[in-house]
Design a binder for these strands. Sequence first.
DNA 1: AATTAAATTGTAATCATTACAAATTAGTGT
DNA 2: ACACTAATTTGTAATGATTACAATTTAATT
Lengths: 133, 133
Amino acid sequence: MNTQQISEIFKSKGLKRTPQRIAVYKFLKENPIHPDALTVYEKMVESNPSFSKTTVYNCLQTLCDCGLLIPVNIDKDKIRFDADTSFHGHFKCTKCGDIYDFQCTESNVCGIEGFETLQKDVYYSGICKRCKE
Amino acid sequence: MNTQQISEIFKSKGLKRTPQRIAVYKFLKENPIHPDALTVYEKMVESNPSFSKTTVYNCLQTLCDCGLLIPVNIDKDKIRFDADTSFHGHFKCTKCGDIYDFQCTESNVCGIEGFETLQKDVYYSGICKRCKE
DNA sequence: AATTAAATTGTAATCATTACAAATTAGTGT
DNA sequence: ACACTAATTTGTAATGATTACAATTTAATT
């Protein structure tokens, strides 16, 4: 996904197109590793040493607010982020710490009568295939 | 649930029966409000002023480890706890902050081939019935 | 009652996240 | 191209949940 495409997306969402915001979103789109803020920050600093940690938090928050990112709250101590906003489940391997996506159709998950559900998260944890071998 | 019953449960799990641990578990069993550690601590201190916050954390951890409690990681900033260990979903109202249980049969949720799933969590958020009215 | 390993306590440290204010910049209009 | 304004970025300091740790106490056993 190139900068031009991201610019268009930001424009359609009414977001200012700052280099920092574009870089964060580009990284998330190209690296579906569900990174946390610190991981994003360390990557950003590589190409722009003056990139601020606060900016990372600001960008991630903004991108979540406008629906371009999904926060993945599967860790106890930090929030991860996912640029794939289609509905799917997240599996965390407690051994290697990696997050895996898995298919999980929304209709398989039940809801509550009279409640307005705005977000649905399905989190599994256990041992991944690689760690079992 | 009385102290005698809890004593039996702890005994069967090989847990020491300390007054603090019993008090924490009793509170969780009798108050299905999915409290966080601070809420539990404040309640404990009411009847025992020397109750330590660390003890609350220790007890909650131990009770989770032996399967008597389920950690509910639906908040971004803190962990809640649930003494109902049967499989069900959790709904968080973003307006009032309350957590609601909802029925959610395990078979409705899909998994991943070759992965060993040890824990399954289904978290919804949105507006609860009361806040909508 | 003595013993011992585990639990409790209080304090200090850790670490992700947020608050805040000053400097910078993107987008708009001239 | 230039000026303007509101939004964004930056750096530092604060917050708050959780953990580390060492000394004291205690549950369970001999």
